[in-house]
Amino acid sequence: MKILLCCAAGMSTSLIVEKMKKAAETRNMDVTIEAVSVDEIENVIQDYDVVLLGPQVKYKKNQLQKLGDKHGKKVDVINPVDYGLVKGDKILDFAIKLREDE
């Protein structure tokens, strides 16, 4: 499964990527997780299954959703509490659920 994380500058998400990867490891899941800044998303979206947004780029959701629809990808904002507390586990769950909803 390929997950794309996205925030303002690709800064805060990098830690979350790490935590999610760890969580996936313990579950023996094979995932690819990358973090990019909001401006880069357009170039890479087709390579991923779901797109998770940091709460601070919530304003972009509608616009990115349209982009996602075009490529058949789900886009959603990470729960701010999970985000704030860097809960890799829960965010991974969220990503999986988002993909299953498809």
Binding site: C7, S12, G54, Q56, V57, K58, P80, Y83, G84, V86
Partner: peptide
């Protein structure tokens, strides 16, 4: 948003 920015 505040949480996001704080983290950032």
């Amino acid at each position: 948003v505040l949480i996001g920015i704080i983290l950032h």
